[in-house]
């Protein structure tokens, strides 16, 4: 199977039952993608699949043959942080940080499609993922701040 991960072409033979999240974490050592439930609810495993957010735990890696996958590692500049990541840090839009890569991928998708979301729109988009630590308040703030920074 052949796919692009964070801009790099990857060719592997893999077991059909390997999930995309296991493939990224175990085979490619991209451990920024986390696994919180493995049943498609929490969104800790969110990655971009051809530009759209997707649950890596619900996808089989083989389903992604030919696709372009972007993980948190692919959204992180070689030096420093992206403006969205900076906003999460400035607002402390995280605590334990376990949901954070998934949240940032999700927020990245939101801002790509809607550069100036309202607080309600942010909440609606973020409701796809669970955070057990922050009560979401600071995450919503962080995304709003990133939107302003990009405007």
């Amino acid at each position: 199977m052949r796919l692009t991960v964070n801009g790099v072409v990857v060719e592997r033979e893999i077991e059909p039952r390997r999930s995309l999240s296991d493939f990224l974490r175990e085979d490619l050592a991209l451990t920024g993608t986390h696994v919180g439930c493995e049943h498609g609810v929490c969104g800790a495993c969110t990655v971009l699949l051809d530009g759209w957010s997707a649950r890596a735990c619900l996808l089989l890696a083989v389903q992604c043959d030919g696709a372009a996958v972007t993980t948190i590692e692919g959204l992180t500049p070689a030096e420093g942080l992206s403006p969205l990541q900076e906003a999460f840090r400035a607002c402390h839009g995280l605590q334990c940080g376990f949901c954070t890569p998934g949240m940032i991928v999700l927020a990245h998708e939101l801002l790509a499609r809607n550069p100036a979301p309202s607080a309600d729109e942010i909440r609606e988009a973020l409701a796809a993922n669970l955070c057990m630590c922050t009560g979401y308040v600071a995450i919503v703030r962080a995304v709003a701040r990133a939107a302003v920074a990009r405007a």
Binding site: R25, E26, T31, G32, T33, H34, V35, T71, I72, E73, T76, L81, Q85, F88, R89, A90, H92, L94, C96, G97, F98, T100, P101, I104
Partner: peptide, 20 residues
């Protein structure tokens, strides 16, 4: 702002299941 947040927002935290 938090020191640890810098690694966590980049997916560079090191959690139990990341150890092998």
């Amino acid at each position: 702002p938090l020191k640890e947040d810098a690694r966590l927002v980049a997916g560079r935290g090191r959690f139990l299941d990341d150890l092998a």
